[in-house]
Design a protein around this nucleic acid. Structure first.
Lengths: 387, 387
DNA sequence: TGAATAAGTTAACCATGATTCGCGGCCAGG
DNA sequence: CCTGGCCGCGAATCATGGTTAACTTATTCA
C-alpha cells in the first residue's frame, strides 16, 4: 500500500505536504471541496488547521496540488509502450486511485480559469494518449471520432470513482479494461443529416416555487451546491433571499426536492421502458434509450442527481440513495439475466460505467450534434453492458 | 450633542450606518485601525459583528467611510465666507471632532493608493481654502510658502486629536484659533543658499539586536506597528522570523525598546538645551532648536514615538507615557514661566500643537530643503508657544 | 393586512500572526 | 577530541479576526 504512510509514532515526517494533498483529495471526492473544512483535513493528517498553511498557501492551493498530483500520477503510470499495456495501466490507475479519481469528475469546477485550462490541457494529453494509437489502429476513424471514443473510454475508467460498489481490485481492473476496449471498438457516432428539431430551451414557468426549483437546479449544476447561496437562488428567481424561505424550509430541502423530482423521472422512465419489453435484451435497449433521452431532456437535473449526492440533508439521504441504488439494481438485474455468467458485482461496475459515460459525453457534446450522439450513447451503453 | 444618537431604547434605528462609522472612527483614533476588531465596533454599536456587513462591505470600507465623513464634515463646516470666520470654523471642527480628528494624522496610512489619492485631494482642497485667502492677504508670499503656512495652521488644529489634555471646549477653540493665526502671520521659510551637507543615511551597524531595532523602527514608521509582522522584521534584518525571539522576548518589546530609546534621546536633548540657558525665553528657543534637530536626525524614531503610543505593552505603557508627559510638562513649565497670564491647560494645548507641527511639517518637507525648514520650524514653535 | 424586504443572529470557516519547540551546525574552551 | 552554548531555522500551536452563509425577526409597502 504505497498510498498510506506510517505517520504514527514519528514526529514531523517528511511527507507532510504530500500527505495533506492525499488526505484532502480523498475527502474532497467524498464530500466535495466546500464540504470539507481545513480543520478536518488537518485532523486526519494529525496536525492543527493553521499548521497546514506551513505547507500550502491556502485551501485552494491544496485542491490544485491534489489535482496536479492525480494528473501527474495518471500521466506517469500510463506512459508505457503498447496500446494494450496502456489500457491496463489506465485500469490499474483507476483502481489504485479509486478514492481520488473523483477529482476528474466534479471537483475541477472549483478551479480557477487558469488552472482549469491547465487541467484541461493535461486531460487532453491523456485523451491523445488513447486517441492517437486508436486512430492508427482504426484508420477509418476521423480524428474527432477517435477522440470521442477515447473520451468514452476514459469515462469508463473514471466511473469507478463515482460509486462504492464492492468489488475485488483485480476483478474491477479486468472489467473496466474489457469495457473500455469494447467502447474503443465501437463504431463512431454517425452525424445526423438533419439537425433535428430539438426542443428549444424549455421556458416552463410554473409558480414561484417551481421557478425557484428550476433555477436552483441550473445553478447547482453550473457551480455546485456549496458554491451557490440562497442569495444567488433568490436573485435568479427574481426575489429577495429571505423570501426563498416562503417556499422552501431550507437550502437542503431545495436540493432534496430536486432529487425527488429526478428520482421520479428516472423511475418513471424505467417503468415505461420495461413495460413493453419483449425480452431481456430488448428491455436493456429500451432502458438505454429512455435513459439517454432523459439525460438530454433534463440534463441539469440529471447532472445534479449524479453529482450532489453528498450535500443531501441527512433525513432524505437514505431514502434517496435507496432509490438510486434500486435504479442501478434494476439495470444489474437485467444485465445478469441476459449474461448469466456475469457476477452481480461486475454487472454493477459496468452499469455505473455505462451511466457515467452517458453523463460525461452528454455534458461534452454540442447541442447541434445531439441526435447523432443520442443513438451513439445508446449503443455505447449496450457495448459496455455486454462487454 | 448632535454626534451621539440615542440608540438605547429604540430598536433598529435609521442611522446605523453612520453610527458604525462614527464609533469606528473614534476607536480607530484611539487604538489604530488594526488595533480595533470589528466585533468591538459592533459591540459598541449594539449589534453583532456580522451584522456590520449589512452596512459595509468589509472593515476597510468602514475606514474609508469614516475618513470621508470626517473630511466631508470639515469641508462642509468650513465652507463659510470670510477668512476669520473660516478659521473659527476650523477651530470649532477640531474641537467638536476631537475624538476622530486623529484620522487625519495617522490612519490614512492604511488606505489604498486610490483612496489615499482621494483623501489627499480633499486635504489639498482644505489646504487651499486657507492658502488662497492667505496669499491674497499677504501678496509677498509665494504660492508654495502660503501653502506651507496653511499646512502648519491645519497641523495646529489637528493637534487636538493627538492628546487628551483636559481643557474646556471654548478655551481650546480660542487657543487653537490664536495659534493658527499666529502661524499664518509668520514669515515663510527662507530657502538656504547651500543645500547643506546633510548627513548621509546613517549605516550604523551594531549587533544583530541593534539592526533589528533599527529596521523595526523604520518599518513601524512606514507601515505602522500592526501592519508589520515578525517575518517582515526578520527579513529586514536578514534572519528568520523565529530567530527574532533570540533578541527580543516579543514584538511588543521591540516597540517598547524603541520608545525607551526615543525617550532617552528626548530627555537628553531637553537636558542639554536647558543646561546653558540664560533665561526662560532662551531656554524655550534652545528646546525648540534641539527638538527640531532631533526630529530631523532621527525622524523614524520620533515618528514612531508619536504615532504608536497605543500598541505599547501594558507593562511599559504607563512608565513611557509618564516620560512623555514629563517632557510635555517641561515645555509647559517653561511656557507658563515666560507667560504668567497663561493657564497651564492652554500652555499644554499649545505645546502639543507646536510638537505636532514639527512632526507634520518634518514629515512633509523634502530632504533638500531641510536646513531652511529647520530654522522655520524653530520659529513656528516659538510663534505657537507665544501666541 | 399580508407578502416582500431589510437588518439581525448564530455558527462555522479560512486565514493571519505571534510565539514555541526541537534540531542541527558552528565554534570556543576544557 | 568532544562538548555545551549560541544561533538559526523549519514546523508546529494558540488565539484571534475577518468574512461568509444559512436562517430569523422586525419593518415596510402595496
Amino acid at each position: 500500500m504505497p498510498v498510506q504512510s506510517p505517520t504514527v509514532g514519528r514526529r514531523r515526517p517528511k511527507d507532510r505536504k504530500d500527505r495533506i494533498a492525499q488526505v484532502a483529495a480523498e475527502l474532497f471526492c467524498e464530500r466535495g471541496y466546500h464540504g470539507v473544512s481545513l480543520e478536518e483535513i488537518a485532523a486526519v493528517v494529525g496536525i492543527s488547521a493553521p499548521a497546514v498553511y506551513r505547507h500550502y498557501e491556502n485551501k485552494y492551493a491544496i485542491l490544485v496540488a491534489a489535482t496536479r498530483e492525480l494528473v501527474a500520477a495518471t500521466l506517469n503510470a500510463t506512459d508505457v509502450v503498447g496500446f494494450d499495456a496502456m489500457l491496463d495501466a489506465f485500469a490499474a490507475v483507476a483502481v489504485t486511485h479509486r478514492k481520488t479519481v473523483g477529482l476528474y469528475q466534479w471537483e475541477w469546477r472549483y478551479l480557477t480559469e487558469e488552472h482549469r485550462r491547465e487541467f484541461g490541457d493535461d486531460l487532453g494529453r491523456l485523451l491523445h494518449r488513447v486517441a492517437e494509437p486508436l486512430a492508427a489502429a482504426r484508420p477509418a476513424l476521423s480524428p474527432a471520432d477517435a477522440e470521442a471514443l477515447a473520451r468514452a473510454a476514459l469515462s469508463v475508467f473514471g466511473s469507478l470513482g463515482t460509486h462504492r460498489a464492492v468489488i475485488a481490485k483485480g476483478r474491477a481492473e479486468q472489467v473496466l479494461r474489457r469495457a473500455a476496449a469494447a467502447v474503443l471498438a465501437t463504431e463512431p457516432p454517425t452525424p445526423a443529416a438533419v439537425p433535428a428539431a430539438v426542443t428549444p430551451p424549455p421556458v416552463r414557468v410554473g409558480g414561484r416555487r417551481e421557478i425557484l426549483l428550476a433555477e436552483s437546479i441550473r445553478l447547482f449544476r453550473r457551480r455546485g451546491y456549496h458554491a451557490v447561496n440562497i442569495e444567488d437562488i433568490g436573485r435568479a428567481a427574481g426575489i429577495n433571499a429571505s423570501s426563498v424561505y416562503r417556499y422552501f424550509p431550507g437550502k437542503g430541502d431545495i436540493l432534496a426536492a430536486a432529487f425527488y423530482r429526478a428520482s421520479e423521472r428516472v423511475t418513471e422512465a424505467t417503468a415505461v421502458a420495461l413495460n413493453g419489453a419483449a425480452d431481456g435484451a430488448d428491455a436493456l435497449h429500451r432502458m438505454a434509450e429512455s435513459y439517454v433521452e432523459l439525460t438530454f431532456e433534463r440534463s441539469d437535473l440529471v447532472s445534479v442527481y449524479l453529482a450532489e449526492n453528498n450535500n443531501l440533508p441527512e433525513a432524505d439521504r437514505h431514502e434517496l440513495r435507496k432509490v438510486q441504488r434500486l435504479h442501478v439494481e434494476e439495470w444489474v438485474r437485467l444485465v445478469v439475466a441476459v449474461r448469466p455468467g456475469l457476477a452481480a458485482s461486475e454487472a454493477r461496475v459496468l452499469t455505473h460505467a455505462a451511466l457515467n459515460l452517458v453523463a460525461d459525453l452528454g455534458r461534452w457534446v454540442r447541442f447541434d450534434r445531439r441526435t447523432a450522439m443520442d443513438r451513439h450513447l445508446v449503443r455505447l451503453i449496450e457495448v459496455v453492458l455486454w462487454s
